[in-house]
Write a protein that binds this DNA or RNA. Sequence first.
DNA 1: ATTCTGACA
DNA 2: TGTCAGAA
Length: 147
Amino acid sequence: MEPRRDERLRQLFQNLEIGIGGVSSSLGVSQRQLRYWEQKGYIKPIDEKSGVRHYSLATVYLIAFIKDQLDKGYTLDAAVKNSKEARARSRIARELIGSAFDDIEIIDADKGYGKIELDLKESENHPALRILGIIDENGRHFEVKEK
DNA sequence: ATTCTGACA
DNA sequence: TGTCAGAA
């Protein structure tokens, strides 16, 4: 079966590898630092035994995150710890938000205004509710209505 | 030309 | 962490 576009992109990103030189110059992290972080077990190159370090896109993101944290004054240990918490948070947020949203209605594409409805089923504890998340001229807010 | 490891005026 | 050497 012919893969869909997003699936192809996913595979492309999955297979992208970037050398230590590119990562270093692009992100402003020295090769010395990258090797040290690896030694500490914080990052891992793709090909363990080839002798030359190639990083996955996911690892590059992690490196960029740690770099940001360091720039903000965190220690390396704290930066790594924060990265794990950030990953856990976004994983939960994505799963929750991704499944809960029924539809996104665009109010004003140029201004970024829109409306989103959460799909809440009725239960013993509460009636069926419509919860609307809205971004408009009043900022971000929610509206709750009974069905 | 790049990257690797190991060492430290 | 930087930097330099000597090898791959």
